[in-house]
Design a protein around this nucleic acid. Structure first.
Lengths: 223, 223
DNA sequence: ATTTATTTTTAGATTTGTCTAAATTTTAAT
DNA sequence: ATTAAAATTTAGACAAATCTAAAAATAAAT
């Protein structure tokens, strides 16, 4: 089972989009992959016959078990390479993404596992995103409130303290749910509000109350 | 100037074939690249318009300066990755070639140079082939007679001790010349003869006399 | 020096991944 | 409930890299 870099990119993009909002649209995919909606439709058909996803026209996409496994493999490779580039080759954390986009398509499974061991099984990449293990399990990162996270750190929403309807309604409005990844952009001391950013969206402000009740898997290094 | 993996493979194959015998034929290329002669012709035309080589129909190919530079870049990447895989990730030297075939197409120049530094500027890969430096210069490896080399080591012919016409005639007959890369397969104690192998050719035997007078750039590690 | 064999090239087709433009379906708005 | 707008899909085309089968050029053999 070897897939082209292009196909792997589709699978990866669908996986990421699924975490942010479970209805993955053709347009969103075209956007994420910097291609045209028509091309996306074509590819989705091919990937369906390869059983990596289920797709019904006009209805949207959903990864199969196999598709998810593949996505996690690719993400694992991407993040391990990023870690390698920063920790061993002294790259800055901003410049590694592009290179890892190429490296993640190197196929050898043995290479990835050896690299993992060589790096001493890191739990998170330089951006703080968790690195799945050899079996595809994401390590549970310790939970903390957004209000406790430092500026420029990032995490994945893991739980909600105040689960009142009003709170949930507000979170839905801001497009935040379990699994949403967000980045802390600024913290305003005056009122405890925090500016956060969700991928592919404009930054938004959340109040101190929300920040204290939004629990995330905090990104951290392994040692 | 970014080229497809396929184009890079053509350039690399032509470069290698040029060292073994300077008339590079369409068939030899098709063979080396495990493709069909017709495909080779097509590609040679494309690479000509990209000024990586000069090609006249039925007449053969020759890399331009630019083509040679590209070839050396790719070879540098290939050999550095091989060294990395063996020295850092504990791979066996037989299993790294295939993986390096993929890694050599990763484009970032900075990555290669950082990798080189991380590995402490090795002078030869695990098979003993010299690693070009950042400017494309191949390091001069220390010279020794084939008779002094261990089994399974390899080297590049660098000089000839006995330059008598008879010797040169014999070498030409066996397809050995300056720049030819060979591998020591077996050493026969009885008469001092040695079985050597040149890429893409059947193994051949050379006498003790020849082995003592065939000087090669012996492949060695950096430190 | 012809004929035969080999090598190389051309012509036309195929696959993968993409595109534009037009048609269709779904969603939103009155 | 229509109509208008937005999203999605189809149809047809294209570039890259390859292939097969046939034609042309070169090399080898009598």
């Amino acid at each position: 089972m070897k897939y082209s870099a292009s196909k792997e990119n589709y699978i990866k993009a669908i996986f990421h989009l699924q975490q942010e909002q479970d209805n993955v649209t053709t347009n969103a995919l075209a956007d994420a992959l910097r291609t045209k909606p028509a091309s996306v439709t074509d590819m989705l058909k091919k990937l369906t016959t390869e059983k990596l996803l289920q797709y019904e026209r006009y209805r949207g996409v959903k990864l199969t078990m196999e598709g998810k496994k593949l996505a996690v493999q690719i993400i694992r490779k991407h993040r391990l390479w990023e870690y390698f580039l920063v920790e061993k080759l002294q790259f800055g954390w901003e410049e590694v993404h592009e290179i890892a986009e190429e490296l993640e398509h190197i196929s050898s499974k043995k290479l990835v596992d050896r690299l993992d061991a060589f790096l001493d099984f890191p739990k998170a990449d330089p951006h703080g995103d968790p690195i799945p293990d050899s079996n595809g399990r994401m390590p549970a990162l310790k939970q903390s409130a957004v209000s406790d996270m430092p500026v420029n750190s990032s995490g994945t929403v893991n739980g909600i303290g105040d689960q009142s309807p009003a709170m949930l309604e507000l979170l839905r409005h801001k497009n935040i749910q379990l699994g949403t990844r967000l980045e802390i952009k600024r913290k305003f001391g005056v009122d405890g509000s925090i500016e956060i950013k969700i991928r592919n969206q404009q930054p938004v402000n959340i109040s101190e109350h929300v920040a204290k009740n939004l629990l995330v898997a905090h990104d951290n290094k392994s040692r």
